[in-house]
């Protein structure tokens, strides 16, 4: 009955190395409606889900090398839902011909004591933000259209200020490494969203 999809297998065991395939883009607030309309038509036969999440980004600074970064996220709309802790690796280098950004990804759901645990471990919160928007799904593809807001007073998610006049659009798939068909599917899906939004492979390092 419940054939468990691959993604629910334990990722911590190291048996399956999950990768996140990602395409990103953005739309201005004015054109959000038409994009949502298009997504509703393209995505699976279900109503888009609204969400409001609070993300905290933690850093662990070691003696040398890059700091270790973890993202902790909790749902503001569903307070009892578990926290989600995520590690995202560096984008895979080389392979310029690859259609989507590919990076290592470890997902863990955690209880509500996560911030304390991270603090105890020596992590320090770097920044936090609130993301609100809509969530779509098409097969294994996840489309997140979200507005990012800055948290003005640390810890207070009521008091926020939008970061920009546009929405972030992310198309992502979680799959084991080396699945090129995944990125092809993503590319063809992204093609269907043009010209409402141009989803592209964006290297976060270039932006820094």
């Amino acid at each position: 009955m419940e054939a468990p999809p691959v993604s629910v297998m334990p990722v911590t065991g190291g048996a399956i190395n999950m990768m996140e395939y990602l395409l990103q883009g953005s739309v201005l607030d004015q054109s959000l409606e038409s994009l949502l309309h298009r997504l509703r038509g393209l995505c699976d036969n279900m109503e888009p889900e609204s969400f409001a999440d609070h993300e905290l980004v933690y850093l662990l600074k070691g003696q040398q090398g890059n700091p270790f970064l973890l993202r902790a996220r909790r749902s503001l709309l569903h307070p009892p839902a578990p926290w989600h802790l995520r590690y995202l690796g560096q984008p895979e280098v080389g392979d310029k011909s690859r259609l989507a950004l590919v990076r290592n990804c470890v997902d863990v759901s955690a209880s509500h004591g996560l911030p304390e645990v991270l603090n105890e471990m020596g992590f320090r919160m770097d920044h936090e933000f609130v993301a609100k928007g809509q969530l779509f799904r098409k097969g294994g593809m996840k489309v997140v259209v979200s507005k990012l807001s800055r948290v003005l007073v640390p810890g207070n998610t009521e008091n926020t200020e939008p970061l920009s006049l546009s929405y972030l659009v992310e198309l992502s798939v979680l799959a084991p490494a080396g699945q090129d068909t995944v990125s092809e599917d993503m590319r063809s899906f992204a093609e269907q969203l043009k010209p409402l939004v141009h989803l592209e492979k964006i290297d976060p390092k270039r932006l820094m």
């Binding site: 629910v8 999440d53 996220r73 749902s75 926290w83 979200s146 979680l174």
Partner: peptide, 26 residues
């Protein structure tokens, strides 16, 4: 099968059964 795939909250969590996400923290 349609309704078992609920959208994850928070949104960054992977698609899976809610109870499986609950299993660890609980």
């Amino acid at each position: 099968t349609l309704s078992s795939v609920v959208m994850p909250h928070p949104a960054s969590a992977p698609f899976s059964h809610k109870r499986l996400r609950m299993a660890g923290p609980m």
